[in-house]
Amino acid sequence: MNNEEKGMSLIVKTVTRWLKGFIFLFGAYIVVFGHLSPGGGFPGGVVFAATFILITLAFGREYALKKIGKILASELDSLGALLFLIIATLGIYFTGIFFSNFIEKFHPTGNFKLFSSGTIPLCNISIGIKVGASLFMIFIILSIVRVVFEDGKGKLITTEKKREK
């Protein structure tokens, strides 16, 4: 790593580097199997966001923003919502009813399979994208905000400067 000074200690960084893929995979699992087991779009999206929040905590904000930019996160956020809306609106196109489940729900090898519930997994995926991007954005924005004090001479200083004094 180039930015040794930023972020937390070497141990945390190493563990994060190993774990981030697995956490992301776990999020994907929760999203995709949301209609069969406990979970769904929202919890899965939270786990997606947790991956990036962990990277932000361990390596610092700049490193995380290099991986996924603010504009990209904002666009993913809109994309998730739009996808959900498109899936719901396609119901009008196919069956004439908003939000109707227009994909075949029957599966040859029986119920409770991955592709046995029509549009629900697609909805879950779009919610996962939306929630993950939104929560990551909220965390980044909270980390940008600084509490400002007046130092008694009419100047404004941040918390870190105050602590140094």
Partner: peptide, 19 residues
């Protein structure tokens, strides 16, 4: 008239504009 249009149109455009 299709009643969900009152919700679909504004939300759709609201998320389309930032993209």
């Amino acid at each position: 008239i299709n009643l969900p249009l009152f919700v679909i149109i504004p939300f759709g455009v609201a998320f389309f504009i930032p993209m």
